[in-house]
Design a protein around this nucleic acid. Structure first.
Lengths: 190, 190
DNA sequence: TAAAAAACTTGAAGTAGTTCAAGAAAGGAT
DNA sequence: ATCCTTTCTTGAACTACTTCAAGTTTTTTA
């Protein structure tokens, strides 16, 4: 149950037996049902979530009441609103399960505590974040340089299983165009 | 010369006298002239740059040969291509000085070394990155929810001095629209 | 301080993608 | 198995923004 996270940590830093056990005492694994939220706009984001199983998206609702998906997360990714988490400010975002999922959550206080007891984890979280941030930089590059159609074909080539896994309208939103347009791209009508 | 960085570190973690001195031995401060690059597409990004003075932008050149600015950096920000830095892969980006600037650079090996000697810095870099990543998440929100005109007015309200500081065509590119369109927004011709 | 280069402006014509509305298909719950 | 909800499709009308080209202004360099 907690193994996926320990394995993930192990890719970045080596913990000894005691440290692993310490980590375990701080974690809390629970199920999140499809469509359930772990964060809503306006709330202060007080935890980070490691996805053990399932799929989430981070989204906002625009002034027309339409959902815009900014980010997806699947197994072995951390999800949170880092800005709200760090600065205790109300979040701009919703984070919602797209499938029945399982997450390991750790709240801010526990994390602070844990990082004092297992300082090696500072490195783990640093490297994780570096990876996410790198990915987000590349994403902006794609948004800035490719047409809607190119973005769709690109993601479809790189992550075909993922494209099947999430609703089309969310994918369209993530790629920053309308669901109708995605439908037309797929039908070859553009 | 190195004080701005030590001050910045001090906002996140407290170093003792020895640790500060250790840090200093790893740093290298140098001037970068306007239009000079610290990173070009295709190079592996081997260092992180802390901006002591001046202004940089990270950009790509698209298939039409046009520059697209993905990110700006000013005093007290770190700039690098984290993906390339972490995974030793060729960078997608250029990083160039917009003004005559001064940076403190630290290369990958030195950083690894330094982090071993001053482990507290793991925390510093983690928190720095968390802040940058949070900012980049919010930026994507703006790109996804505001019209071109709204994005311009927003940045102009939030950071008026910054808007004056960089060429309009770079700002337009950063906001993801054409320089001509920015000209028209400013003239009230949209 | 003149000449060259870089940055900004303007209008006209074009287009990539949106919006709307209505129907069809697929998925979930009881 | 059927009803209800959610998701996907299609075409027609529209629009926010781009592209192009030419001229003007500002900045840099020698």
């Amino acid at each position: 149950m907690y193994l996926p996270l320990l394995d993930h940590i192990d890719k970045f830093v080596k913990l000894d037996h005691d440290e692993r056990n310490t980590v375990l005492t701080y974690l809390d694994c629970h199920k999140v049902r499809k469509k359930e939220h772990v964060l809503k706009e306006g709330q202060v984001c007080n935890a980070q979530y490691f996805i053990v199983k399932g799929c989430f998206h981070q989204y906002i609702i625009n002034e027309k009441g339409v959902e815009k998906t900014l980010l997806f997360g699947i197994e072995n990714w951390w999800m949170t609103d880092f800005l709200s988490f760090q600065s205790h400010s109300p979040s701009n975002f919703y984070i919602q399960a797209i499938e029945n999922s399982e997450v390991i959550s750790i709240d801010k206080e526990s994390l602070e505590d844990l990082l004092i007891r297992v300082p090696k984890l500072e490195r783990y979280f640093r490297l994780c974040m570096q990876k996410s941030f790198g990915a987000s930089q590349v994403r902006i590059k794609y948004l800035f340089t490719m047409s809607a159609e190119e973005r769709y074909h690109h993601i479809n080539t790189m992550f075909p299983e993922f494209v099947q896994r999430v609703p089309q309208y969310m994918l369209a939103s993530y790629l920053d165009f309308s669901p109708e347009f995605l439908s037309k791209i797929r039908a070859g009508k553009v």
